Amino acid sequence: MKTEYKCLECALSGYTRLVEKQDIPKEKKDDLVRWFFSYMSGIDLSTPAPFIARDMHAYLRKELNCNDLYAEDKLNDNNKIMNMLPEFKEAVKNAIHPEIAALKLAIAGNIIDLGTNHGMDHSQVISQAIARDLAVDDSARLLTAIKNASNFIYLCDNAGEIVFDRLFLDTISELGILDKSNVVLAVRGAPIINDVTLEDAEYVGLTRDYHVISNGDHAPGTCLKFTSDEFNDAFAKADFVISKGQGNFESLFSKKDKQIFFMLIAKCSLVADQIGVDVGDMICKLNDTDAEIN
């Protein structure tokens, strides 16, 4: 997706919110904000928003001498969802279709996104997830693709959310839909907002049961011109892709030569309009692809 002026408004809000949190002199904060406007004046609006966020946060990390500006937030979100995991497991177990219940929770977990200004209540969205309908529902095709696949890649998104990803994968594995050896999970190559890194994947136990790789890049999306050779090789060889979250959707939306299932909550009007849903809707959507569908 191309960057629209509303994306710049969201970027400014997130950037200034992060700057304001820093314990630094006002003069330094002013300099950081001046840089933002100077940088934005020269951006290419045909570039997806995650590419722009990549540059913004790289600059902040360098200027603030801090590798992970959201480390505490990520730890808190991972701990919060892991502490609640027994009740979510019970809800999935008691559902008429446990695989769909777990899939809905994995999508609802995408609300834990510190890079957007959606204003939705995390707890409410997650607690209501199993009872809600998907606004776009390609879940049957997704589960069939997983069952038939010899190799696919799962693009993780945010801390906290990743605990629900594990619940979804564990559930469909227990039901005989997924062979764990057939999936590669990919995370960010370095900290960016509250996106998942290898450290987060290890912390929530994903690396014990699944093959997890870094994508080699720090954009809050999947920018294939920046990702590593290892990731690009896994992406190219995959029968299909599961893409979690809005940033991955924005950066992979136009890719038509690969079967991609997008799992996300639409958290802004631009993404919602692109998909044809309302803000806040839960989505499991197969992309418009030229690739063969299993």
Rank of each mutant, 00 (worst) to 15 (best):
E4D: 00
S13A: 15
T16K: 14
E27G: 04
K28A: 03
W35A: 03
F37L: 05
M56D: 00
A58R: 12
L60H: 03
E63Q: 08
N67V: 08
D73M: 07
D73H: 08
K80V: 02
E90F: 11
A91I: 00
A91M: 08
I96N: 11
I96D: 12
I107D: 09
A108H: 01
L114V: 06
M120T: 06
V125D: 00
V125C: 05
Q128I: 03
A129Q: 03
D137E: 10
D138N: 15
A140W: 15
T144E: 14
A149S: 13
Y154M: 14
C156A: 11
C156G: 12
F164A: 09
R166L: 05
R166W: 02
F168Q: 04
D170K: 05
T171S: 02
I177Y: 07
I177D: 05
D179Y: 11
L185G: 12
I192M: 13
D195C: 04
L198E: 14
E202I: 13
E202T: 15
V204M: 11
T222E: 09
C223G: 13
F226Y: 01
A234V: 02
I242E: 07
E250G: 00
A272W: 08
Q274D: 07
V279I: 15
I283A: 05
C284L: 03
L286I: 10
I293T: 15
